[in-house]
């Protein structure tokens, strides 16, 4: 399954506004994308389009997370979402 590892760039972590922006972007992808903290088993990964899941993930600033997706458009979806994660949305 295609996957990417990314570093959370928002200083408040993946909460609040950054989480909302990321969940919304994940929901717009043509494939289902999951998110997990790096080093945790793949079957514990959560739905990346769920803001409630993202909030309970507890990914702080600088945390490494793994995004996974399968199917047509998966590679492009993952690339797009990595970009969102690695932008500091708190700076805006």
């Amino acid at each position: 399954m295609p996957e990417r590892t990314a570093t959370v760039a928002s200083r408040v972590g993946l909460h609040a506004r950054p989480a909302a922006i990321f969940a919304e972007a994940a929901g717009e992808q043509p494939v289902e994308v999951t998110i997990a903290l790096a080093g945790t088993p793949a079957d514990e990964a959560m739905d990346a389009s769920s803001i409630l899941s993202l909030m309970s993930l507890g990914a702080e600033f600088g945390a490494q997370v793994v995004l996974r997706a399968e199917g047509e458009g998966a590679e492009e979806a993952l690339d797009a979402l990595v970009k969102v994660l690695e932008t500091d949305h708190d700076a805006a």
């Binding site: 609040a16 506004r17 989480a19 909302a20 969940a23 919304e24 959560m46 739905d47 389009s49 769920s50 803001i51 409630l52 899941s53």
Partner: peptide, 16 residues
Amino acid sequence: AEVLKATALMAADPML
């Protein structure tokens, strides 16, 4: 506005 936007996302959250 930010709080309401996040709350709006929660309303149709797939996990919920």
